[in-house]
Amino acid sequence: MREWQVKRRERTRQLIELGGLVAKADLVDLTDDDRAALYGAFLTVAAKLRGPDGAQALLLFRRKGKRAFEAEQSNDG
């Protein structure tokens, strides 16, 4: 397989996984699949991360996400 094909597959997989996280967070239903609202929300998060408290915000987002993954794993087991 050519290098560009491998990179394309990796990118496709990444985008599918990111889309899965959007669905997992229930954002599709909460916004009634409004792409502009979702994009606006992502831009708001990006602005927060670029701001003076970005490192702290990232830490909080990461903790919350890890807890959610762990809770989901506990519920599946």
Rank of each mutant, 00 (worst) to 15 (best):
M1N: 09
M1V: 14
R2I: 06
R2V: 05
E3S: 09
E3Y: 12
W4E: 15
Q5N: 10
Q5P: 01
Q5D: 10
Q5G: 06
V6D: 02
K7R: 11
K7Y: 04
K7M: 10
R8P: 03
R9H: 11
E10Y: 04
E10D: 07
R11W: 07
R11A: 14
T12P: 04
Q14K: 10
Q14L: 14
Q14T: 10
Q14W: 09
L15E: 15
L15R: 12
I16F: 07
I16S: 08
E17A: 15
E17C: 12
E17I: 15
L18G: 01
L18N: 07
L18T: 04
G19N: 06
G20M: 01
G20Y: 00
L21F: 08
L21E: 09
L21K: 05
L21G: 03
V22F: 03
V22A: 04
A23T: 10
A23K: 15
A23S: 10
A23V: 14
K24S: 10
A25T: 00
A25M: 04
A25I: 00
D26N: 04
L27E: 00
L27A: 01
L27M: 07
L27Q: 01
V28Q: 00
V28W: 00
V28F: 02
D29F: 06
T31L: 01
D32P: 00
D32R: 06
D32S: 10
D33S: 13
D33E: 08
D33H: 05
D33C: 04
D33T: 01
D33V: 03
D33Q: 05
D33W: 05
D34S: 03
D34E: 01
R35W: 05
R35A: 15
A36P: 02
A37K: 14
A37F: 03
L38E: 05
L38N: 03
L38F: 03
L38Q: 03
Y39W: 11
Y39K: 13
Y39E: 13
G40N: 12
G40R: 08
A41W: 08
A41L: 14
A41D: 13
F42N: 07
F42P: 01
F42D: 05
L43F: 05
L43P: 02
T44K: 14
V45P: 06
V45K: 03
V45Q: 04
A47Q: 14
A47F: 09
K48L: 11
L49T: 00
R50A: 12
P52M: 09
D53L: 07
G54T: 01
G54C: 00
A55D: 13
A55W: 02
Q56W: 03
Q56L: 10
A57H: 08
L59W: 08
L60E: 13
L60D: 11
L60G: 03
F61M: 11
F61L: 15
R62L: 09
R62F: 13
R63L: 13
R63I: 06
R63Q: 15
K64A: 11
K64H: 12
K64T: 15
G65A: 14
K66I: 14
R67V: 06
R67W: 10
A68D: 11
A68T: 07
A68S: 09
A68R: 11
A68N: 06
E70K: 05
E70Q: 06
E70S: 04
A71H: 10
E72D: 11
E72A: 13
E72I: 01
E72F: 05
Q73G: 02
S74T: 08
S74K: 13
N75D: 06
N75S: 11
N75C: 08
N75A: 15
N75G: 12
G77I: 07
G77D: 12
